[in-house]
Amino acid sequence: MDVKDGRTVKGVNFVDLRDAGDAVELAAYYAEQGADELVFLDITATHEKRKTLVELVQKVAKELNIPFTVGGGISTPEDVGVLLNAGADKVSINSAAVRNPQLISDLAKRFGSQCVVLAVDAKCVDGNWEVYLNGGRLSTGIDLFEWIVKAEQLGAGEILFTSMNHDGTKNGFANETLVKISEMVNIPVIASGGAGNMEHFADAFIEGKADAALAASVFHFKEIGIPELKKYLKTKNIPVRI
């Protein structure tokens, strides 16, 4: 769930925000539907808005008995401490880690790798996968695969990989790239960006060898129901909690 002022929004290719509802209510609904984990990304995280995010985390933690990750604007161990204390299970870091890779190891040492999710937004341009920041607007010149391997070495516990080429397209996940990442590192990889139908999820697990798949709009706009999706994945011999 991309969150802005306590409400979820989902962009198509990261622009054109559409309102998809109240974050706490949606979280409870998804937990009941059988989501295994929720991710909240605060897309407008600025200093003034930090308090809103912490309050949201508290509300969600009170309501929810499944794990959830919070990201957006996290740049110091203090930020992480506040969110974990508010009830988040994991945090995801993105730009701050690109600017200061040492942050990953600082967080891993202080809080444990298991709660450090490295979110990576990448775009394939002329056959080269490059890390992007600011919702895909800022090119970094950093090679995706080199960055992910480095992040694992520094102590990231999980990779949340979003392909900017696939995000919002509903044409499926970036499976060829996913499988490459998944075989390169020994930490869980979450596929993100591109889910349009139930087959896409099965493909992300089978072809992309992803450890988890993340989606937003197909769930927010009830195009795919989580119970049906899990039943379908089970028929494809993918282990799921039902």
Binding site: G157, N186, I187, P188, D211, A212, R241
Partner: peptide, 11 residues
């Protein structure tokens, strides 16, 4: 050991 992904994360 690193025979599978570590951390063991999930259900």
């Amino acid at each position: 050991t690193n025979e599978q992904k570590v951390p063991h994360m999930g259900w």
